[in-house]
Design a protein around this nucleic acid. Structure first.
Length: 947
DNA sequence: TGCAATGCATA
DNA sequence: GTATGCATTGCAA
């Protein structure tokens, strides 16, 4: 740091708005009913800046009466800005009072905006040799940046970044910060109501700046432009110049920088304290005192106070809450004041006994007690959501409704390990049932501490998934639905995500205890509730024999992850870049102007309004032109540009979703990609995969399937093996419908689509044409989804009536299939649900709807859900059995991925032959149908070869 | 910054 | 026509 004096100029409204909206979801209201969010937000920022930077000089700048000059220029200027919210207007006088008490000058000039005031002052200060920092998130200020003038921007997630000349150059792709004005003038700014040039957005504005340097130069050289862009800009030259003027911050406001006045001297502490007290700011008072006490001791920059965030002690302002007493076991049902407001029960209105357990002897006694139980609910609290990196913060236990204990964990990893060892006997005891909500997570976290969770499991999330798969299964929702109870929300403890979200570690122990034990308590109560509901039908069996065992299998697969060849993807990315740029160029040429191809809105306008490729274009339900793949493909043969757009889309998608995204998902600690299988989201019983989704890696196109080459074995001693069920859904529908013709075809190992074509089109199977087979294939799939003639004709070259005829012939060929489908619909009408071979239910509330569209959808679900769901059941059985065999046989080979009808394994080469047999056998014999199941195996050095 | 709409990858 | 997850755009709060 140089010895230059530093001046900080604060853009008041910008920070006030920011603070206000930060609390928008739960505004701070004090006992007088005043919304203090804006004051709180602003003061937090201000103190933060002072604490971090210890400025020599500081002032706060306000707007007043809008900008006279700008309004004269353009009457719409800021016209459509919303009324200032009530909570902000009322905050201003308070803020001014506080600033006065703090002896901080308030700079404001009637008829000017804060931007102008700050701009003017910063230039004056610069002449006097100051370094000026403009405290504002507003990008417009970038135009003011010089060697001695900086932006000091609060950034998302806490902290600040300083923008000097290099940052501005990079951010806006300009050579001189002054060009930011041209940039803003071209692009426009909807919040400031600067119109900008029509059709020019961020991308184009950057390009123009690069090409022409300034607005004036652009307007003088419009002949270099082409197409519609040229017309539009030439027609709006005045608007361009006006926009630039509007974007220009004035530097001649009649204000004066007086160094003496701006010195940050000692505040009137008593007065500030008094104001804060009236506003009921407790935490802020502490923060304020801390900020200025270090200053008064004059020990310059103390490093520790930077980290001493003001947020470590969340204020509990609503009531003298129950929380803090519980540690000592007091009954906390002090319901007297608050209960009347709530119809729903909460921790505050319910008698409970939640206790944290001290380390040492208390823990030993606790464990002894724990080991005497037969069934215990537990819940781990960690530092994050990723079980591979999350550290234990504590574990809650409950085995009696309304009661529970919390074991906090030390931050030191070795000490934490020592503590968890004391709990090992519990977790690894085969005879104690473990209850939890989403146990897969806890099991994965504990696995990282080398703890295996043994014994019977009861996962309330899985239980509810089987009871009602169409609902959501978060604990909060379940508690409200089944227990009429609202749990403490995680946000009240650690804040909203992003922003300044805390880690559970930063939450005071009492709060951790209340929160964590409540979760365990609630989960225990839910278990008692769900246990009975599972009892009926076959659901209990499905739960005990499929979903719960599968949970451990998935945990292992996720922990294992898969190896990814990052270098390969990098080179693929470069190739794609090249091709995309080329396509972009020729599309712009064909269109006669540049636009955002990725924007369906803009694309629709170019294609259908400008180029008029179609007489009456299709529109989507929101009134946009439909530019979906199906529509464009149809046009592709007539217009070259369409094919290029399709290619462009394909390549962009490929690059952004897979090629560039996957390497970022490699877990640092393992060097592998670990997906997360969701066991409770797909209503049919399938799994889903996310972070990243490894169930939708491309395969259809040549270009896309290259991505699969990046999935490789663990090392040279391993190879990948992919095993997939052949036509499992068709086999299932054949078996369930008992359609002999189809069953026979499968038994004879025929090509099922060719076989269908041969019967439907009445030709020998050897003479089926490619087109016939393809149409038959489409109908076969259509059947699974619940066909309609409309859908079929959309998918094939057939007309609506041809499609209808084809479907009729199909039904005539396979009469039992049709019968089966209507049986399913009838069953659903009578029972309200359909089910899979294992009794997994899906409820169809719309099956008797009077609305034909809604009812039709339910009917298709009635046909599809049992088929898709049965296939899911079968592969789940196979996974459980294979997992079992792999572990019994102590094999090194691992199951890595599941893609609905396919399993992918990392095979230790010496085990290859054994694995082939084991996997094929287990998959084909997972479930007995009247149709044989057939599994194809493929092996390779990457996922593409193994397919 | 968060959400809806759109489009697209898989089975 | 079934079932998902995710990237991008564009608008709103």
């Amino acid at each position: 740091m140089s010895d230059q004096k530093r001046l900080f100029l604060v853009d008041a409204y910008a920070l006030i708005f920011r603070g206000y909206y930060a609390f928008i979801k739960n505004p701070r209201i004090n006992s007088k009913g005043e919304d203090t969010s804006a004051i709180m937000g602003f003061m937090n920022s201000l103190l933060d800046v002072i604490k971090r930077e210890r400025p020599d000089h500081l002032a706060v700048c306000f707007d007043k009466g809008g900008s006279v000059d700008r309004v004269e220029m353009f009457e719409a200027y800021k016209a459509n800005r919303d009324e200032t919210p009530e909570g902000i207007r009322t905050a201003i006088p308070h803020i001014c009072n506080i600033l006065e008490a703090m002896h901080i000058p308030i700079m404001v000039k009637e008829g000017y905006e804060a931007d102008d005031v700050i701009g003017t002052l910063s230039r004056q200060a610069e002449k006097e040799g100051y370094k000026t920092y403009m405290v504002t998130p507003d990008k417009d200020f970038a135009q003011l940046v010089t060697e001695n003038i900086f932006m000091y921007r609060p950034v998302f997630g806490g902290g600040y970044e300083t923008w000097g000349i290099p940052e501005v150059q990079k951010k806006f792709e300009v050579k001189d910060p002054l060009q930011v004005i041209d940039f803003l003038g071209m692009m426009g700014d909807s919040s400031d109501n600067i119109p900008g040039l029509p059709g020019v957005g961020e991308k184009t504005a950057k390009k123009f700046i690069n090409q022409f340097g300034s607005m004036e130069n652009l307007l003088a050289n419009t002949h270099e432009l082409k197409g519609k862009m040229k017309e539009k800009i030439e027609a709006n030259k005045e608007l361009g110049l006006l926009s630039k003027q509007l974007a220009t911050i004035m530097l001649d406001v009649p204000v004066t920088f007086n160094a003496k006045d701006f010195e940050l001297d000692h505040p009137d502490i008593e007065k500030v304290k008094q104001i804060f007290q009236e506003l009921e700011f407790r935490r802020l008072t502490d923060n304020f005192l801390k900020t200025f006490s270090t200053e008064t001791t004059e020990t310059t920059t103390q490093t520790p106070d930077k980290q001493e965030a003001p947020k470590t002690t969340p204020t509990e302002k609503k009531s003298a809450g129950a929380g803090q007493f519980s540690l000592f076991g007091g009954d906390t049902s002090n319901t007297t004041e608050t209960v009347s407001e709530y119809t729903r029960k909460t921790a505050e209105t319910t008698s409970h006994f939640y206790q944290s357990v001290a380390s040492g002897m208390a823990t030993k006694l606790f464990v002894k007690n724990l080991m005497n139980q037969t069934s215990v609910c537990f819940d781990t609290e960690t530092t994050g959501l990723n079980p591979l990196t999350a550290e234990l913060v504590g574990i809650a236990f409950s085995w009696e409704v309304g009661k529970g204990f919390y074991i906090p964990f030390p931050e030191d990893r070795n000490e934490a390990q020592t503590l968890i060892e004391e709990l090992r006997p519990f977790f690894e005891n085969e005879n104690i049932e473990k209850i939890g909500q989403n146990l897969k997570y806890d099991i994965k976290v504990l696995a990282k501490y080398n703890i295996e969770v043994k014994g019977k499991l009861f996962d309330t999330m899985l239980a509810h998934y089987l009871i009602n798969p169409d609902m959501r299964h978060n604990m909060d929702v379940l508690a409200e639905t089944y227990l009429n109870y609202t749990p403490i929300s995680i946000e009240t403890l650690i804040g909203k995500k992003g922003k300044n979200q805390l880690s559970m570690r930063d939450v005071p122990l009492e709060k951790q205890t209340e929160y964590a034990v409540e979760d365990a308590d609630i989960t225990l109560q839910l278990k008692e509730h769900f246990q009975n509901e599972l009892g009926e039908a076959n659901t209990q069996k499905l739960f005990d024999e499929i979903e719960v065992p599968l949970l451990r299998v998935l945990a292992d697969m996720e922990l294992e992850g898969i190896n990814l060849d990052k270098g390969f993807l990098e080179s693929l990315s470069e190739q794609l870049n090249n091709d995309i740029a080329n396509l972009e160029k020729s599309i712009y040429e064909a269109a006669g102007e540049e636009f955002n191809i990725a924007s369906p809105k803009q694309l629709g306008i170019i294609l259908f309004e400008k180029m008029k490729l179609v007489d009456k274009p299709k529109k989507t339900k929101t009134g946009q032109y439909a530019t979906g793949e199906d529509i464009l493909s149809y046009l592709a043969k007539d217009h070259e540009i369409i094919q290029q757009i399709l290619d462009y889309r394909g390549l962009s998608k490929l690059k952004s979703t897979y090629v560039d995204a996957l390497p970022l998902q490699v877990e640092e600690s393992t060097g592998r990609v670990h997906t997360d299988y969701m066991q409770t989201v797909a209503a049919t019983g399938r799994l889903s995969s996310n972070n990243p989704n490894l169930q939708n890696i491309p395969i259809r196109t040549e270009r896309g399937r290259q991505v699969r080459k990046a999935f490789i074995p663990r090392n040279v001693d391993y190879t990948l093996l992919a095993a997939d069920y052949s036509q499992i859904e068709l086999r299932i529908i054949a078996a369930l419908s008992e359609e002999e013709t189809m069953i026979e075809a499968f038994k004879n190992g025929e090509d099922i689509h060719a076989s269908t074509a041969s019967r439907v089109f009445n030709v020998p199977i050897t003479e089926v044409t490619r087109e016939q087979r393809s149409n038959a294939k489409t109908v076969n799939f259509g059947i699974i989804y619940g066909v309609s003639a409309f859908g079929l004709s959309n998918q094939t070259d057939l007309s609506r009536s041809e499609s209808k005829e084809l479907i009729e012939t199909y039904y005539a060929t396979y009469p039992k299939l049709r019968a089966y489908m209507s049986e399913q619909v009838d069953f659903a009408r009578d029972n309200g649900y359909v089910q899979t071979v294992l009794g997994r239910r899906r409820y169809l509330k719309d099956i008797n709807s009077r609305n034909a569209v809604v009812r039709g959808a339910a009917e298709r679900n009635a046909v599809n859900a049992p088929i898709q769901g049965s296939a899911a059941d079968i592969i789940k059985i196979a996974m459980i059995n294979i997992h079992q065999k792999l572990s019994e046989g102590n094999y090194k080979s691992k199951m890595l991925l599941q893609v609905h009808d396919e399993l992918v394994f990392d095979i230790y080469k010496p085990e290859l032959e054994a694995m082939k047999t084991l996997i094929k056998t287990e998959m084909e014999n997972a479930y007995q149908l009247s149709v044989p199941l057939d599994v194809d195996l493929d092996i390779g050095d990457n996922w593409l070869e193994a397919h």
